[in-house]
Design a protein around this nucleic acid. Structure first.
Length: 241
DNA sequence: AATTGTTGCAACCGCTGTCAT
DNA sequence: GATGACAGCGGTTGCAACAAT
């Protein structure tokens, strides 16, 4: 009657650890259940999102490689905003990450392009100020702009060389490393009876950081279009920190 | 050094699809 | 076959960090 308000907002280290523990126990499918039994007071959705986007052991962090950038462009041209689908082709990247990447970088592109492509309307004094049509130097309002990168209709510019800056801000209070260390110490491979496939689970620091143990969840390799080349020679490069 | 603008990331919301009953 | 519950997806928003002025 009182204590179950659903928590929202940023996750704390404690919550993260708790979630990881419970995912170890029950696998990464039954989110609603996990949300309940863990006592996190989060929704199943929220738990899933946190896991998928942040806690998942195989996540790469840091900026996209040129190969990844290219692949994203290619796949987006092919599939449009099917982020999860695209993410499946990019091991270690999440749909959210790709989505964010796309937004920011396409926004840049759009701006560049508009700058370059519309000499007609900007004519001579295209420079700044005269932006009657918004777009230009005015900070695109975060909401309305969508249409340009909405569906994958854009030509694939090989923007390979373009390094997207995006310096990884780093974690705020604590790092995944810390968490995993913690887990490492507190968790034994808990596989008694429970769980489905969550069992052969291993922390990145504990064992091979590979993708194999995620059968079909996130980054399984796709049915259709088996012809997508994998940009990774090194396959499992995981940038920690 | 302070202020303002911009960028990037994490998280939430609503909708849709799938599966179990 | 209908209904309900849950998981997953895509879009959007809020906020903190960073850069420029």
């Amino acid at each position: 009657m009182m204590q179950d308000e659903i928590r929202k907002g940023p996750w704390t280290e404690k919550e993260d650890i708790l979630l990881i523990n419970f995912v170890h126990l029950f696998g990464d499918r039954r989110w609603d259940f996990i949300a309940k039994v863990s006592g996190l007071n989060r929704t199943g959705k929220s738990c899933r999102l946190r896991w998928v986007n942040y806690l998942h052991p195989g996540l790469k962090r840091g900026k996209m490689t040129p190969q990844e950038e290219r692949l994203v462009l290619e796949l987006h041209a092919k599939w449009g905003n099917r982020w999860s689908r695209i993410a499946r082709k990019l091991p270690g990247r999440t749909d959210n990450e790709i989505k964010n990447y796309w937004r920011t970088h396409m926004r840049k592109k759009a701006q560049e392009r508009k700058g370059a492509m519309s000499p007609s309307l900007s004519s001579s004094n295209c420079s700044s100020s005269s932006n009657t049509t918004t777009v230009n130097s005015s900070p695109l309002p975060r909401t309305g702009e969508t249409s340009f990168y909405d569906t994958g209709g854009l030509e694939q510019v090989a923007l390979a060389g373009k390094n997207s800056e995006a310096v990884q801000g780093g974690e705020k209070g604590y790092s995944m490393d810390d968490i995993w260390k913690d887990i490492e110490n507190t968790i034994e491979p808990v596989c008694d009876g429970f769980s489905e496939k969550g069992c052969n689970f291993s922390c990145p620091s504990l064992a091979s950081p590979s993708w194999d143990y995620f059968p079909d969840t996130l980054w399984g390799f796709g049915e259709e279009e088996g012809k997508i080349f994998l940009p990774y020679d090194d396959g499992t490069t995981i940038l920690t920190g």
